[in-house]
Lab assay of single mutants.
Amino acid sequence: HMTFVALYDYVASGETDLSFKKGERLQIVNNTEGDWWLAHSLTTGRTGYISSNYVAPSD
């Protein structure tokens, strides 16, 4: 899985979204569905959809 880092804080707007904080590391589970990616937070252990605009590759 690809690992990304959050560029900004994000508060989930629905049950399927994932809230995260700036600097949080996220593993991308599925990024084939446009701008919203299914991600797993390595910080909180939660999984949900994130906006690809809010993250950048961590490598």
Rank of each mutant, 00 (worst) to 15 (best):
D35K: 11
T47K: 07
V55D: 02
G45Q: 04
G14C: 15
K22D: 02
P57C: 08
A6R: 00
V5F: 06
A39D: 01
M2W: 10
H1I: 13
W36D: 04
N30K: 09
E33W: 08
K21M: 10
T43K: 07
R25Y: 15
E24T: 01
D59G: 12
V5G: 00
S52V: 09
G23S: 02
D9Q: 01
S58L: 15
I50Q: 00
W37F: 06
K22N: 02
T43E: 14
A56N: 06
S19I: 05
I28F: 03
Y10R: 05
E24P: 00
W36H: 11
T32G: 10
T43A: 11
D35S: 10
S58P: 08
N53R: 14
H1T: 13
P57K: 10
T44Q: 03
D35G: 10
W36A: 08
S13E: 12
N53L: 14
Q27N: 07
R46A: 09
D9E: 05
I28D: 01
Y49T: 04
E15S: 12
Y54H: 11
I28R: 05
D17Y: 15
G23P: 03
V55G: 04
L38C: 11
S51I: 09
V11F: 11
K22F: 04
L26C: 03
E24C: 04
V55A: 05
V11T: 11
G14D: 10
K21Q: 11
T47A: 05
D35M: 10
E15D: 13
V11E: 13
Y10D: 00
V55F: 11
A39C: 04
D9K: 00
S58K: 07
F4E: 00
R25M: 15
V29P: 04
G48K: 01
P57T: 08
P57G: 06
K21A: 09
L26D: 02
A39K: 00
T3I: 15
N53Q: 14
W37R: 02
E24Q: 02
T43N: 09
W37A: 02
P57Q: 10
S13K: 14
H1Q: 12
D35P: 08
S41G: 03
I28H: 01
A56R: 10
L38A: 01
S41A: 02
P57F: 11
V5I: 14
G48Q: 03
E24K: 01
L42W: 05
T16R: 13
P57R: 08
L18Q: 01
T43F: 06
A12P: 04
V5C: 05
T43R: 07
T16M: 13
Y10G: 02
N31H: 11
M2H: 10
T44F: 04
Y49H: 05
L7D: 02
R46K: 14
N31K: 14
A6S: 05
Y8H: 08
L38R: 02
L7E: 04
L26E: 00
G45Y: 03
T47G: 04
Y49V: 04
Y10T: 03
L42C: 12
V29L: 15
D35Q: 11
T43W: 07
H40G: 01
L18R: 01
M2P: 12
T47M: 08
G34M: 07
T43Q: 08
D35I: 10
D17P: 01
T44E: 01
S13P: 07
Y10V: 08
P57V: 11
E24N: 01
Y8T: 08
D59P: 14
W36E: 05
R25W: 13
V55T: 03
Q27S: 08
S52R: 12
D35H: 11
A56K: 11
F20D: 00
Y54V: 07
F4H: 04
S13Y: 09
F20A: 01
N30Q: 10
Q27A: 09
D35W: 07
D17G: 12
A39Y: 04
A39T: 04
S41Q: 04
L26T: 01
D59A: 14
Y10W: 06
G34V: 08
V5W: 04
S41C: 05
G48I: 02
L26A: 00
Y49R: 05
V5S: 03
Y54R: 05
G14H: 13
Y49K: 05
Q27P: 01
D17H: 14
M2K: 12
S52W: 07
T47W: 13
